Amino acid sequence: MIACLAPASPASAQPMAGGLPDDLTAWGMFISADWIVKSVMIGLAVASVITWTVLAAKTLELRKAAAAQRAALAAIEGARSLEAAVMAVDREALVSAALLAAAAAEVRQSADALQDGEGLKERVASRLDRIEAAAGRRMTRGTSVLATIGATAPFVGLFGTVWGIMNSFIGIAASQTTNLAVVAPGIAEALLATAMGLVAAIPAVVIYNHFARQIAAFKALVGDTSAAVLRLVSRDLSRGIVGKPDLHVAE
Rank of each mutant, 00 (worst) to 15 (best):
230 L>Q: 08
203 P>Q: 13
227 A>D: 08
181 A>P: 00
212 A>K: 15
186 G>A: 09
215 I>Y: 03
197 G>I: 07
205 V>C: 12
205 V>M: 14
232 L>C: 05
217 A>G: 13
198 L>W: 06
224 D>T: 07
191 L>D: 12
198 L>I: 15
173 A>E: 08
180 L>N: 01
175 S>L: 07
177 T>C: 03
223 G>A: 15
219 K>F: 00
230 L>F: 00
219 K>L: 08
212 A>T: 15
228 A>W: 02
224 D>M: 12
205 V>R: 04
204 A>V: 10
179 N>A: 13
234 S>Y: 00
172 I>A: 02
199 V>D: 03
230 L>E: 06
187 I>H: 06
219 K>G: 13
211 F>P: 01
231 R>T: 06
173 A>H: 01
231 R>L: 07
179 N>L: 05
186 G>E: 08
229 V>E: 03
188 A>L: 10
196 M>G: 02
185 P>Y: 07
193 A>L: 12
176 Q>L: 02
213 R>E: 12
226 S>R: 11
185 P>K: 07
189 E>N: 06
214 Q>F: 04
179 N>S: 12
200 A>R: 03
206 V>E: 02
201 A>Y: 02
208 Y>L: 14
206 V>K: 01
207 I>L: 06
189 E>F: 09
199 V>A: 14
232 L>P: 02
184 A>P: 05
187 I>C: 04
217 A>N: 14
190 A>C: 09
195 A>M: 14
216 A>V: 08
185 P>C: 10
231 R>Y: 02
186 G>H: 05
209 N>M: 13
201 A>D: 05
180 L>M: 13
172 I>M: 14
227 A>F: 08
205 V>E: 06
200 A>G: 09
181 A>Q: 10
218 F>Y: 15
204 A>Q: 05
219 K>T: 15
187 I>Q: 08
222 V>H: 00
204 A>G: 07
183 V>F: 07
192 L>T: 02
226 S>G: 12
192 L>S: 04
179 N>G: 00
233 V>G: 01
226 S>K: 05
221 L>V: 04
206 V>W: 01
206 V>H: 01
218 F>E: 09
225 T>Q: 05
223 G>D: 13
194 T>W: 04
207 I>N: 02
193 A>G: 11
182 V>L: 11
181 A>M: 10
200 A>N: 09
212 A>N: 14
226 S>D: 05
196 M>Y: 11
181 A>S: 12
222 V>E: 00
177 T>K: 04
189 E>Q: 15
190 A>H: 10
180 L>W: 06
208 Y>S: 15
175 S>K: 12
222 V>T: 07
185 P>T: 06
195 A>Q: 12
190 A>E: 11
226 S>Q: 08
172 I>C: 00
193 A>F: 11
190 A>P: 08
231 R>F: 03
223 G>F: 05
184 A>I: 09
187 I>E: 07
201 A>L: 13
172 I>G: 01
182 V>Q: 09
223 G>L: 09
181 A>V: 08
225 T>I: 04
194 T>S: 15
228 A>N: 01
217 A>L: 13
204 A>T: 10
192 L>D: 02
176 Q>H: 07
189 E>D: 06
